[in-house]
Amino acid sequence: MKVKATSANKVNGKLIKYKRGDCLSINCNNGKYIGAFISEKFNNYYDLTLIEYYEDHKPALYHFTDGRFWGTRFGTWESLAYAVDKKMALVNYIDGHKGIEVVGELSLIKTLEKASYSYINTITALHDYYVDEITIRVQKTQNVENYPDLAFMSKHLLSMKSIINL
């Protein structure tokens, strides 16, 4: 049985705070901030996609437009499709969190695919995932730059310019 999507802009009859393409500053409560964007809203969940950003100040929009997101490629060099890694978080949790704010908005391509997804329950869990995974992503990205044949085989960091409408 296929799960049917609910209203794109409501949860339990209440308007949601964020929408697809919103760029978020996430305060990790340790003096650091993470950058993520809303790649989709599905039923009671926001799909957050991380960017390569972990600093002691809030990200600005240019960190998103000029940055790299967590994802992969599909297809061939002649016909590329892009996919994002999604961290699914309850809309009510994200909407009510005081440490999250919009720093800008991007127009994402319509053909954005899902590379992977998992659920998170807290900002601490998102932070821990970021810290555990970023070194691996950077190494895989360097491997892709050195060995282009790996570009379609791993989850790495990709230019945001490849998934935004300019």
Rank of each mutant, 00 (worst) to 15 (best):
D66G: 11
K17G: 01
I26H: 01
E78T: 09
D56V: 06
L48G: 00
L15A: 13
L24E: 00
L80I: 11
K32R: 15
G104T: 12
V103E: 10
S25D: 07
G21A: 09
K110F: 07
M88H: 13
L50I: 08
Y45A: 02
E52M: 03
Y45W: 14
L106M: 13
K32Q: 15
Y18T: 05
P59E: 01
S116W: 07
G21Y: 06
E78S: 11
S107Q: 15
Y33D: 12
F69W: 01
N43W: 11
T49H: 02
N44M: 11
K110N: 14
A36F: 03
L15K: 15
K32P: 14
L108Y: 01
T111S: 12
H63A: 13
K17E: 02
I38M: 10
E52L: 02
D47H: 15
E113F: 06
E113N: 07
Y119Q: 12
T111W: 08
S25V: 07
Y93E: 14
S118W: 10
L48V: 06
E78A: 14
I51T: 15
N44I: 07
T111F: 07
C28E: 04
C23P: 00
G71I: 05
G96L: 10
F37R: 00
Y82I: 05
I120E: 12
K19P: 02
G67D: 05
A89H: 01
Y53P: 08
I26Q: 03
A115Q: 09
P59V: 07
Y119P: 04
E52Q: 06
A36P: 00
L61Y: 04
Y119I: 13
W77V: 03
I26T: 02
D95Q: 10
Y33E: 15
L50Y: 12
Y119T: 15
G67K: 00
E105A: 10
Y54S: 15
E40C: 12
A81H: 04
L61H: 04
T65K: 11
K87I: 06
C23H: 00
E78L: 11
A115K: 11
L24P: 00
Y18L: 05
H63M: 09
K19H: 10
S118A: 10
D85N: 08
F64S: 14
K58C: 14
S116M: 10
K114G: 00
R73T: 05
Y119S: 14
N29F: 10
I120P: 09
H97I: 06
Y45R: 04
D95Y: 12
Y54E: 15
A81S: 13
V102F: 02
I34N: 13
G104I: 10
E101S: 07
L50W: 05
C23R: 00
K32D: 15
A115G: 07
N29Y: 11
Y54R: 14
G99A: 05
V91P: 02
D85F: 08
S39I: 09
T72R: 01
K58L: 13
T49D: 04
E105N: 14
E52C: 04
G21V: 08
L48F: 02
T111V: 06
I16V: 13
A89C: 09
G35S: 10
R20P: 00
G31D: 09
A36D: 00
G71R: 00
I26F: 02
N30E: 12
A115N: 11
K86M: 08
E101M: 03
Y93T: 15
E101I: 02
K114I: 01
N29M: 09
G96F: 12
I51E: 09
D66Q: 11
V103Y: 09
K14S: 05
V103F: 11
W77A: 06
A60E: 11
E52A: 04
Y62F: 08
